[in-house]
Amino acid sequence: MTLKVYLSGEIHTSWREDLIAACDGLDVKFDAPVTDHGASDDCGVAILGAEDNKFWHDHKGAKVNAIRTRKGIEDADVVVVRFGEKYKQWNAAFDAGYAAALGKSLIVMHQAEHQHALKEVDAAALAVTETPEQVAQILRYVLTSVLPG
């Protein structure tokens, strides 16, 4: 069985690469949003034309990015949403809610200090983790029935 896993959330650390490396040998296909921050922010105006107002600049970019995000989440068997330590990722919370509304298997990843702020998101998840390695262990167990260690 091949698992399609969509990796949503913060783009400021190497968690995606760490998770993919930890899943080496597993039958997993990964997908993700555009993680080039500049390209993600400016795609709407680069393609559809400049905006004087920052709201409309961001609005265009969000809509263009949503085409990829919606497709990735809809096609996924499992959606992993990482909440980073430095920034509030409202888009990640939205992706988690969208995945939950679609009935996707949702794994949330964040540090313990965010438990209270993310309690509703955590309640929708099938697993709440802190590290890419824990996510990899879940995927390994789902695919192989093998426990870590």
Rank of each mutant, 00 (worst) to 15 (best):
W90K: 07
E10T: 15
E51D: 13
G25K: 08
T69G: 02
F83M: 04
K54R: 10
G44D: 04
V45S: 14
H37G: 00
A99R: 05
Y98D: 14
L26Q: 06
E17S: 11
G72M: 03
C43S: 07
Y141D: 04
E74F: 10
I47K: 08
W56I: 02
I138Q: 06
G25N: 09
I107Q: 05
E120S: 14
G103C: 10
Q89H: 07
A22S: 14
V80A: 15
T35K: 00
P148F: 01
A32D: 02
L3R: 12
C43D: 02
K60Q: 10
G72T: 04
R16Q: 15
S14N: 15
A22W: 03
A99T: 10
V34M: 03
I11D: 01
I67W: 00
D122P: 00
D36T: 01
R140L: 01
M1Q: 09
A39C: 05
K4L: 15
V108L: 15
C43H: 01
H12L: 06
K63S: 06
W56C: 00
W15R: 05
I11L: 09
G44L: 04
C43Y: 00
A136V: 07
T144E: 10
G84R: 01
K119S: 15
T2M: 14
V135S: 07
A62F: 02
D75K: 06
H116W: 13
A123L: 11
F30G: 11
A66R: 14
R82D: 05
V34T: 05
D36Y: 00
A92G: 14
F94H: 12
S145E: 10
L147I: 05
D75I: 02
A92R: 02
T69Q: 03
E17C: 02
I107M: 12
M109P: 01
H114W: 11
A32M: 12
V80G: 11
D18R: 10
D18H: 07
G49E: 06
